[in-house]
């Protein structure tokens, strides 16, 4: 017979664990590429308007940014623990950890909202008179800031919805210790949201 590496047969059709993982990773790859565009724009404009980016970056609230980073990293931990709990068979603990993860995501968004509001309060938002009166580099920095953190915020929100669905599926026994793939994939998505923030944080808050 053949030296085929993966003889796909119909037995694995019903519960193709590797296939589901592969599909999820491909999807995450497309998400990374979605952010690739704005990251590319950021690098080009930062190169052109280095001084403006430097100055504007200092005006962002480093404290809230750091707290949010800590929150999101912790939420990734609770997510990973939730999957471990499921694999070890403790359904209740897994659900509890999922809810903690969702709550941490909510806190992250609340902080982000505060941060946006304070900027908007100072008249710094896209197309505002104040901002348009400033240098072009600052317009672009804050344009990218609002766009990229906004896009990321939408992903956090989407991730929270996904995790909520996962929690429901765990409670209704659609996700079980022997078939945890949906929870694992939800976790992968959450980690992706976290990883993107890990890049956004230094680019906007730290690199001055």
């Amino acid at each position: 017979m053949s030296t085929n590496d993966m003889d796909g047969t119909d037995q694995i059709r019903e519960r193709d664990y590797t296939g589901a993982k592969l599909g999820m990773w491909l999807f995450l790859f497309t998400e990374v590429l979605l952010f690739f565009g704005p990251f590319l724009l950021y690098s080009v404009y930062r190169y052109r308007f280095g001084a403006d980016f430097h100055g504007a970056s200092r005006e962002l609230d480093l404290f809230i940014g750091s707290v949010n980073t800590a929150i999101l990293l912790t939420s990734s931990l609770t997510m990973a623990l939730s999957i471990s709990a499921m694999q070890k068979g403790s359904k209740g603990l897994s659900v509890a950890l999922l809810f903690i993860t969702i709550a941490l995501g909510g806190v992250f968004l609340a902080n982000k909202y505060q941060e946006w509001m304070s900027k908007i309060g100072h008249g710094i938002y896209p197309n505002s008179q104040t901002l348009l009166g400033q240098s072009r580099g600052r317009v672009l920095f804050f344009g990218l800031y609002f766009f990229m953190t906004g896009l990321h915020g939408l992903h956090v929100l989407a991730g929270m919805v996904v995790l909520a669905f996962a929690a429901v599926l765990v409670i209704t026994e659609k996700i079980t210790p022997s078939d945890p793939i949906k929870l694992e994939n939800a976790g992968l998505y959450w980690h992706l949201v976290d990883v993107i923030w890990i890049y956004l944080f230094p680019l906007f808050y730290l690199v001055t």
């Binding site: 690739f36 197309n127 317009v139 672009l140 344009g143």
Partner: peptide
């Protein structure tokens, strides 16, 4: 995905005027 986000940027540009592709804003 790259096309997707580029078109989102143009939509945002039209709705909110963020300035990423607008030469008048840098």
């Amino acid at each position: 995905p790259v096309l997707g986000v580029t078109f989102v940027l143009v939509m945002m540009e039209r709705v909110f005027g963020i300035g990423i592709f607008d030469p008048a804003k840098g």
